[in-house]
Design a protein around this nucleic acid. Structure first.
Length: 536
RNA sequence: GCUCCGGUAGUGUAGUCCGGCCAAUCAUUCCGGCCUUUCGAGCCGAAGACUCGGGUUCGAAUCCCGGCCGGAGCACCA
């Protein structure tokens, strides 16, 4: 009936007809149904094989016109981008790409105190965007725009829409909660202007005065009543070009409101923690007669493996020496997962798959790993890495060169050649359950039969590989005695072992240590290779 | 306390605006099986969900009301 509106004129008759026909149809089977269908309505046969293909990727942006979309990502660079930031980075930039619009990276860096920007972090954001393959059309620093903010503030004061408030924080809260105007609310614009000039001139102390936007002090939502727009903080800004220039700092809702308008934002997508900003900033937009961008919000993201984290708690832990830095593989920063070899494309898919729902999500890194594995499996060369190594002597073998494929299915990639004497190293856990007489396979090398457990010795076995496989014998990996020290750093901590020499040629590449997992080769030196673990 | 928002398989999503193409999509996870000289990949199969209660309607995941649960805001943080 959805397709044939004319049937709706008499729905009772339709359902009655269905009641009668269904038992009859149920007597048949799929084959007779199909035969019958091709008899009475062959054109519908095709429809049977058409699978419902849901829309992949991001849903269309409401009101978006090709070429006219302007969006931004506006972080405070008080630390590096985290997995949480990645959502904003990916979703916003993808939409801009979708509509051939303009993408702005704006640093909302106007708090020198509680969320003080970190000088290095500005570049880290740029770098992470580069990695994502995103080139912002414009990079903006809110801290460059104090004069503009001051201008608009002055206008609002002149319009009687803003006032300098000298209440102590808790006093103002009391007034506000009681829906009462504080004693400063009705000060004349002239007087406010004077106080404002004094604020700017540094004549008031920290916390002594604040500029408020006049909204509706009786509004039923307390979040909207006369919110603060500027405060005094006699501190320097970490950016040298700003330094000690200013003592009056704009708050987020004010700076953001001005910026979004000045930059011509058409759409804003951000976390729902900022959902009230729209209503607060709406007053400014109304006073100036501006049009507010269309907004979309998403819920909180929690990642199973990392639990709750915030930039400030991470910073403390790093400063306390619990982590090696912001790219420690145990951390949920973009820098860390990059270092582990997670591909930008995998992160993008992961974020896009998550969508922009308002519901809070609790997602597992497994999905990210699954995406990454799909990308990395075909391109990663294979190597052997033996952890917890133990020596195994093959008493009757002669020195030889083993030839192993770099990739299990793509042999065109070539081979690795390993010179082996009559001793190899294997993982202790692989030989623990063996007994004398056990026959196993050294992968891509030879079959052996254990002849002694201590010392661990074996002899070449004449059992064929086929027979061995049939018997489901163990196939283990190994390295020659002449291996390189390898340290794998991962979310679960460090693991040391020996790897084959060829790994040294894979600096910066993602490889698979067989039977272990995918790793990115991070550093190579004479004495040690450091690999970062991505996932199994 | 006041205000706002949300609730589809273990997880994440599609569908909700505009009620019938929904016996509800896709992915991941898990479980079987096949294949493979890796514990990787691939292939086949299976399992698994509309928060609850009312109402409107011929018909509700979809609309309305209420409950329950969860989240956010009420900062001189972003």
């Amino acid at each position: 009936m959805g397709e044939c509106p004319q049937l709706r004129s008499d729905p009772n008759a339709v359902s009655e007809a269905l009641e009668n026909i269904i038992p009859e149809i149920a007597k048949g089977n799929p084959e007779t149904w199909e035969a019958k269908l091709s008899e009475i309505a062959p054109e519908l046969i095709e429809a049977l094989s058409v699978k419902k293909e849901p829309d992949k990727g991001l849903k269309p942006l409401e009101g978006a016109e090709n070429g006219k979309v302007v969006m931004r990502f506006a972080p405070n660079p008080n630390g590096p981008a985290t997995l949480g930031s990645a959502r904003g980075m990916v979703v916003n930039s993808e939409y801009v790409k979708m509509y051939n619009g303009k993408f702005v990276l704006r640093f909302d860096d106007t708090d020198p105190d509680i969320k003080r920007p970190m000088l290095e972090a500005y570049d880290w954001y740029l770098d992470d965007f580069k990695w994502l393959g995103v080139v912002p059309d414009q990079v903006v620093y809110a801290s460059d725009h104090f004069p503009m903010y001051y201008d608009y503030a002055r206008k609002l004061i002149e319009m009687g829409k803003a006032y300098v408030c000298f209440c102590k924080g808790e006093d103002f809260k009391r007034f506000k909660d009681a829906k009462q105007a504080c004693p400063h609310r009705d000060t004349s614009p002239e007087e406010n202007l004077m106080h404002w000039e004094k604020m700017l001139a540094g004549e008031y102390e920290d916390q002594q005065a604040v500029l408020r936007i006049k909204t509706d002090i009786k509004h039923k939502d307390p979040a909207l009543r006369d919110w603060g727009a500027f405060r005094i903080r006699k501190m320097s800004h970490p950016r040298p070009e700003i330094g000690n220039k200013y003592v009056v700092w704009p708050l987020l809702d004010f700076a953001g409101a001005i910026e979004d308008h000045e930059l011509g934002m058409t759409h804003i997508i951000r976390g729902k923690d900022l959902i009230d900003s729209e209503k607060r900033q709406g007053y400014i937009y109304k006073y100036f007669g501006w049009k507010y961008p269309r907004t979309t919000h998403w819920g909180r993201v929690k990642i199973h493996e990392f639990g709750k984290f915030s930039t400030s708690t991470l910073r403390k832990a790093i400063e306390a020496g619990e982590y090696s830095g912001w790219d420690d593989p145990r951390l949920p920063t973009i820098r860390a997962i990059r270092r582990r070899g997670i591909q930008a494309e995998a992160l993008k898919k992961f974020m896009i798959e998550m969508g922009v729902g308002m519901t809070d999500v609790s997602i597992s890194m497994e999905s990210l790993y699954a995406e990454n594995r799909k990308i990395v499996d075909p391109i990663a060369n294979r190597y052997f890495f033996v952890w917890d190594p133990v020596e195994l002597e093959i008493t009757d073998s002669k020195p030889t060169v083993a030839k192993l494929p770099l990739h299990p299915t793509d042999h065109a990639r070539g081979f690795r050649e390993i010179a082996v004497g009559n001793k190899v190293l294997v993982c202790t856990e692989d030989v623990e359950k063996l007994e004398v007489g056990s026959v196993i396979r050294l992968k891509d090398f030879c079959n052996i039969e254990i002849t002694s457990l201590s010392p661990l010795q074996a002899k070449l076995s004449d059992v064929s590989l086929e027979a061995l496989k049939k018997a489901k014998a163990k196939i283990i990996h190994w390295v020659p005695l002449e291996g390189i020290n390898v340290k794998v750093r991962g979310p679960e901590g460090d693991l040391k072992g020996i790897g084959e020499q060829g790994i040294a040629t894979e600096l910066d590449n993602i490889v698979q240590f067989e039977r272990f997992g995918f790793c990115r080769i991070d550093t190579v030196s004479e004495e040690e290779i450091v690999a970062y673990f991505a996932h199994k």
